[in-house]
Amino acid sequence: MELFIGVSGINAFDNPGPGVGVAKSLKEDKELKAKIVGLAYDAMEPGAYMDWVVDKAFILPYPSSGYEAFINRLYYVKETFGLDFVFPNLDAELPLLIKYQEELGRAGIKTFLPTAEQFKLRGKDRLEEVAAKIGFDSPRSLVITSYDELYKAVEKLGLPLMVKGVFYKAYKANTLPEAVSHYNKIVAEWGYPVILQQVVYGDEMNVVGAGDGEGNSLGVVGIKKLWITELGKIWTGVTVKNEKMLQGAEKFISELGWKGPFELECIVDTKENKVYLIEINPRFPAWSYFSTGVGVNIAANIVRKAFGMPIREFKDYEAGKLYVRFTDDLITDMERFQKLLVRGES
C-alpha cells in the first residue's frame, strides 16, 4: 500500500524549513512506500522542484486566510492525487490543524499532533513550568506589560538580559535603554506581553524527538550546534549524549504525554550540570534529517504509529556524528514554475 504523505515547510533556502528533511526521512523507510505531497505556500519553494524527494507539489492558501480555504485545499489534494497523512512543519499551521484534526481524520487525512493544551505549553510564558516538570532549569524570567514593570524587572534580574516576545523574537539588552528599545520593538511587532529573561551561559544544545501521546518515545536525539548561519540556523552540528538533557526529553514525552514531534532548545552548563530550557518547538526542526542519518528515523516512526504499523525501536545512536548542511543548485524548465504558479500544482 502506498501512503500519500503531505509535507509542508519545503522551503530550503537561507532560512530552511523542516519539510525537505522530513520528506527525505520518510522516503528512506522503504516499508512506508511514501508518496510525498509537497505542500507549499509559494511557487518558488525549492522542495517543489526536488522531484527525487517530493512526488508532487501543491500550493496552499495561508492558514491565516481561514479554515475553509485551507481545509478545502487539503480535501482537493486528497481527491485529485491522494493524501493519507499531513505533516505540518510550520508553526503557523499548527493551531488550525490541531483544532480540525478530528474532522480531517474523518475525511481520511490523518495527523499526529499535540493536543491544544500541550500546544499552549510551548509559550515562552510556560517554560518555567515545563522545565520544572522535566528536571530542567529555566532562566529566571518575568512577564511584563508596562514600562513600570520593565524597570522593576530589570532591577530584579540584572543586566544583561533577554527581551522576548511570547512566541517570536528575542533580543539581548546590555543596558536599560537597550531593554526599553527592544521592549518597544517587540510590542510594536508582536504585542503584549513581553518576557524579560536572565541570560544563562553554556553550550547551545538541542533535542529532537517525538512522543506517541501515550507516554512512549518514538525516538530522541541530542545535538550540539557547532556553526550557525547569521539567521541562527545550524549548518554544522554534532550528536551528543548529555544524559540529563536526554532524560529531560524522555520525561517531556512521559510526563506531558506529548504527541507528535518536538524540539527542545537548551543551554547546557556542564560545569554546574544544569540544563536550561530555552524554547519548545512543537514540530520538527530544520535539521531533523540528522536524526535519521544516525539511525533514528523519528518521522517514519510517527507515520508508523499513526497507521498502526510496528514502531522501530531505537535504543541508541552514536555520539560524535557530524552534520553538515550545504547548498546545491538545480536547473529545470520554466514550465514547471509556470504550472505551479498558474495551476497551483506541479
Binding site: V240, K241, T270
Partner: peptide, 9 residues
Amino acid sequence: VFDPVQGES
C-alpha cells in the same frame, strides 16, 4: 579527542 557530553573536540 571527542567529549560526547559537551560536544567539544
